[in-house]
């Protein structure tokens, strides 16, 4: 997986987007949908991050011979 710094900006962008949507939905009175978008945002970011973390663990494993 190609790891680049863009990932940080993408996550920040998703965060801002989700928070904006959250506010809008709250003001419009749709609380359940607000909560659901928050949850969806968290899961999307999780998917993006999980490969990266697995990469990290593999790297540390090979480097320190921790099999």
């Amino acid at each position: 997986m190609i790891i680049s710094v863009d990932l940080i900006f993408k996550i920040a962008a998703i965060g801002i987007l989700v928070s904006v949507l959250n506010q809008v939905l709250l003001r419009a009175g749709r609380e359940e949908q607000a909560m659901m978008t928050t949850l969806a945002g968290i899961i999307v970011v999780l998917m993006m991050v999980i490969n990266l973390v697995s990469d990290l663990f593999d790297t540390v494993k090979t480097m320190f011979q921790l099999y």
């Binding site: 965060g15 989700v18 970011v45 991050v49 990290l56």
Partner: peptide, 24 residues
């Protein structure tokens, strides 16, 4: 800091991801 005020959950990810990227 920007995100943590609004969505602390996403803030965790940013810290985590930055750490991992710098390490790699």
């Amino acid at each position: 800091v920007l995100i943590k005020n609004q969505k602390p959950e996403i803030g965790i990810y940013i810290g985590l991801v930055t750490g991992v990227i710098i390490f790699i």
